[in-house]
Design a protein around this nucleic acid. Structure first.
Lengths: 111, 111
DNA sequence: ATTTCAATTCAACGAGTGTTGAAGTGAATT
DNA sequence: AATTCACTTCAACACTCGTTGAATTGAAAT
């Protein structure tokens, strides 16, 4: 992953509404949730939510699929793992014992 | 951690220069680096770098100390771990085996 | 005390972001 | 085929962010 991709992803997460949104999808897992369900659950106007979902999609953190008349959004787990991995990569000059809890998050991630 | 704190931290990371900066400090570890060294290493103007360091400090991701006439910046590891933990918390409805690589990053983090 | 070095602060400008309300698509129902 | 439902797209506005150059602070050396 390059700096720009990672920065774009963090930028997508750098918003209270989108963060709530992403965490909700993260907790839900691959099954995902319909846009309408999310709008209701998070109390966000549909058009506003749509814009935020778009931002997260474009950043590659979530993806959409159609099911009937609903649009279902779900987290892209591999991309999420890669982003986190990028952030804490090679922490503490290869002496991860220094990093404490971060070290256990620092395994290189595929995707 | 609350949404706002986390969003502020991701916002701080949501910039190519700051991301390079943070990763460099992450790789350096608790010893940290002087502002001047960072400016030279990353080829960023001192005043510009200073602004970015300030943003990261304010977000709680790094901290500064003085050493002689230099100012040394170092990563705040606990806060970093907490932020990552917040993002992937409770992933996949408590079925972390679904999450693959993320699951190994999802331990709750102190600080 | 004065000079030099390291780094920060300030003001100002251009560029980008988020929200809002209205209009538009695309799929299912009647 | 007309309507309804779910959601998205569009345009416009206010607002925030990042960079730049100049001035300032704070610490050490002469």
């Amino acid at each position: 992953m390059d700096d720009r991709t990672a920065a774009e992803r963090f930028s997508a997460l750098a918003h209270p509404t989108r963060l709530r949104l992403f965490r909700r999808l993260m907790q839900t897992g691959p099954d995902g949730l319909a846009a309408g369900v999310l709008a209701e659950a998070l109390q966000v106007a549909p058009n506003n939510l749509s814009a935020h979902l778009n931002t997260l999609s474009q950043a590659g953190l979530i993806e959409a699929r159609r099911e009937g008349r609903s649009r279902i959004y779900a987290v892209r787990i591999g991309a999420t793992a890669a982003t986190v991995g990028f952030l804490v990569d090679e922490c503490c000059q290869g002496h991860p014992e220094v990093c404490g809890v971060v070290a256990r998050r620092a395994e290189p991630a595929g995707v």
